[in-house]
Amino acid sequence: MNKEKEIRTLDSQIEIRAEGDDGENQKIVGYALRFNSESDNLGGFVETIEQNALEGADMSDVRALINHDAHKVLGRNKSGTLKLEVDDFGLKYTIDPPDTTYARDLMESMKRQDISQSSFAFQIDYENEGDTWEYNEDRDLYIRTIKRFKKISDISVVTYPAYSEASSTIAVRGLEDYKSELEEQLNKSKLLIELDL
């Protein structure tokens, strides 16, 4: 099973919150992922994330970025400028952005609601049955359930959703593996039936 990094986007409102009496200290607050919520169609499959999928996940050094660009760092949990909180809804983040041109530009675009989506980069814990696949005949699509993350690499404020065919390539490979396993099981079943005859 492929262990590469995947990226997904959540179309969820991101807020800018002012803290303190002067209202000057602004934070970016949003959700990187939500539990038990079905994704858009990712090219023949949809995903849901189980409530306990983050238990045991490595979130020891997560960066907050703009569009997953390592040159545009907004915060880092190791330094205390990014706070991550797992609650009943999902993975909530609070970013204390730097006083840089790109951060100020981003916040201005967010205030205008030109940018309003969050994304996260992750790895699945395949060694501990991190995901399952199931075909839904009524809907004619596959459902992937993420049961356990291995690592969350970064969370990002993004301009475009990552729910596209290109960003789901790794998951599509997992789907192809699942289809191959089903076909192999079907062929074995056919062989056993023929041998019984």
Rank of each mutant, 00 (worst) to 15 (best):
D96L: 12
K72N: 02
A162D: 09
Y163I: 07
E50R: 08
I152R: 06
D22Q: 15
E50F: 04
T132K: 12
G90D: 08
S153K: 13
K150G: 12
V157P: 12
G80Q: 09
K111G: 05
R63S: 09
N187S: 09
K78Y: 09
G44M: 01
R148T: 05
R112Q: 15
Q13A: 10
D99E: 09
D87K: 00
R76Y: 03
Y163V: 14
Y135H: 09
S39T: 13
L84M: 03
K188F: 03
L192K: 10
R76P: 05
S167A: 12
E15C: 15
Y160S: 14
K111N: 04
D58I: 05
S118R: 05
I66G: 07
Q13I: 15
Q113W: 03
E15V: 12
V157G: 13
S60Y: 01
D22M: 08
L191A: 14
L141N: 05
L91D: 03
K5H: 10
Y126V: 10
E47A: 01
R148E: 04
S180N: 14
Q123Y: 02
L54T: 02
L106F: 01
P98T: 04
D131W: 12
K151A: 06
A162P: 02
L10P: 00
G44N: 00
N36D: 13
E137D: 12
S189W: 04
R76E: 07
D22S: 11
F89A: 08
N136G: 07
V46R: 11
D105A: 06
S164T: 11
L82F: 01
D125T: 06
T101F: 06
T81Q: 14
D96K: 15
R34Y: 08
R76H: 05
F89Y: 07
E47Y: 01
L91T: 04
R104G: 01
H71N: 07
A64V: 02
K151Q: 13
A57L: 04
E85N: 09
Y163N: 12
V46F: 04
N52D: 15
D87L: 00
K188C: 02
I115E: 02
N128I: 06
E134V: 11
D125C: 06
S180G: 13
D69V: 04
E134D: 08
D96P: 07
L182K: 15
E108M: 07
E134W: 06
I143K: 15
S116T: 08
L182G: 03
